[in-house]
């Protein structure tokens, strides 16, 4: 969550939600949360476990690039 919230401060385009999985079982089911931390970006890119900043950023950019049409 730390990286996500710092990214939210860095950009008005980023929103960072920390969700306590046990208190929101419907959301946890929807996103198939089996292990934590689990990160879901724009409902498109998902990963489990903590990533270093550069890898995390790559996932964020991947989520944006995979919106709409696939890259040529």
């Amino acid at each position: 969550m730390r990286l996500a919230q710092h990214m939210a401060v860095a950009s008005p385009h980023v929103r960072a939600d920390c969700v306590e999985a046990g208190e929101f079982p419907d959301l946890a089911r929807k996103y198939r949360v089996m292990a934590v931390p689990k990160v879901v970006i724009n409902d498109r890119v998902q990963f489990e476990g903590a990533l270093p900043e550069r890898e995390f950023l790559r996932k964020v950019l991947e989520a944006v690039e995979s919106d709409g049409q696939a890259p040529a």
């Binding site: 996500a4 860095a10 960072a16 939600d17 969700v19 306590e20 990160v39 970006i41 550069r54 964020v60």
Partner: peptide, 26 residues
């Protein structure tokens, strides 16, 4: 934010909203 200049620049150039959800347990 405690982020590298590279990350900040990439985030400033985001073309659309990004919603990051981090699921955790206590």
């Amino acid at each position: 934010p405690a982020l590298t200049a590279e990350t900040r620049t990439a985030l400033e150039e985001l073309p659309e909203p990004v919603h990051i959800q981090v699921f955790s347990t206590p």
